[in-house]
């Protein structure tokens, strides 16, 4: 599939390092520009720091003691470290490994959860509109329009994950962070999420962390390969998969380790 990459930068990493233990960087001095309206895949073996890097973007590390993030991350030119973390998280939506709709909320309320939790009041008509358009965007509208008042947890795993994506995009974020969003799903559900990501990149910019090399090859425009906390290679996916520059990237893509 030929993807036209619009060469605008949405997110910029400048010397980003993250450490869980003082003196030892789990993510070490990352510099990269993430393109707008593209899917950027972060690949690498377990423990290479790909999720850690992703979670630095929406400042999730601040929830835990002892994790330090240094360097700058610019979202549309604005340093996220100088923004209010709650504001950052509205602009950078996140989808997690396991589908996790709020168990007490209906499908309808799950989509609007971001508004509800932030205390943003909406008119009924606005709510209906957001719910319908977000559920349409994630291809869930036809499946759930009859059961909007049922609990989100009654849906299948794949549907739940799409609901979580709807919940994340309802706030109209600049960028969508996906942390191995299909690793808990079956191949059919995985395929739907991948197709969805390809649709959503028209509206949002997507960074997806994945264990699955084939998935990165299928859907991403740009690929990062991380190893032991370092960004080894960052290239257009097509180029990286056909002509990797670094020996480690080549070995990883060939399945020599990982």
């Amino acid at each position: 599939m030929e993807n036209k990459i619009i060469e605008n930068t949405v997110l910029k990493f400048e010397h980003v390092s993250v450490s869980y233990v003082p003196g030892k960087n789990a993510v070490d001095d990352i510099n990269a520009d993430v393109k707008e309206h593209a899917i950027t895949a972060i690949m690498g073996p377990s423990g290479c720091g790909k999720s850690t890097l992703l979670r630095a973007i929406n400042r999730m590390h601040e929830l835990y003691k002892g994790i330090t993030v240094s360097g700058h991350i610019l979202l549309k030119g604005e340093d996220i470290m100088e923004m209010n973390p709650m504001q950052v998280r509205c602009k950078a939506g996140m989808v997690f490994q396991r589908p996790n709709p709020f168990p007490t909320m209906s499908v309808y309320d799950n989509v609007l959860a971001g508004y509800k939790l932030n205390g943003i009041k909406l008119k009924k008509s606005q709510k209906d509109e957001i719910v319908e358009s977000c559920l349409r965007d994630v291809g869930l509208w036809k499946e759930v329009k009859e059961s909007l008042n049922k609990k989100g947890t009654f849906l299948s795993g794949g549907q739940q994950q799409r609901l979580c994506i709807a919940r994340a995009i309802a706030l109209k974020p600049e960028i969508l962070l996906m942390d191995e969003p299909t690793s808990a799903l079956d191949p059919i559900a995985t395929n739907k999420i991948e197709q969805l990501a390809l649709e959503l990149k028209k509206i949002f910019s997507i960074i997806i962390v994945t264990h699955n090399i084939a998935q990165a090859a299928r859907i991403s425009d740009m690929s990062m390969f991380m190893y032991l906390g370092e960004l080894i290679e960052y290239e257009k996916t097509k180029i990286m998969f056909t002509n990797p520059k670094d020996k480690r990237t080549e070995d990883y893509l060939n399945g020599q380790f990982g």
Partner: peptide, 29 residues
């Protein structure tokens, strides 16, 4: 409660207070 419940609520940009009142407490009802 599963820990990702809290994370996913905070990841929507909500305050700690509303996460506890609107997500965690109702979930553990």
């Amino acid at each position: 409660l599963p820990s990702n419940l809290k994370e996913s609520a905070l990841a929507l940009g909500s305050s700690y207070r509303s996460v506890i009142l609107k997500v965690l407490l109702p979930s553990s009802f």
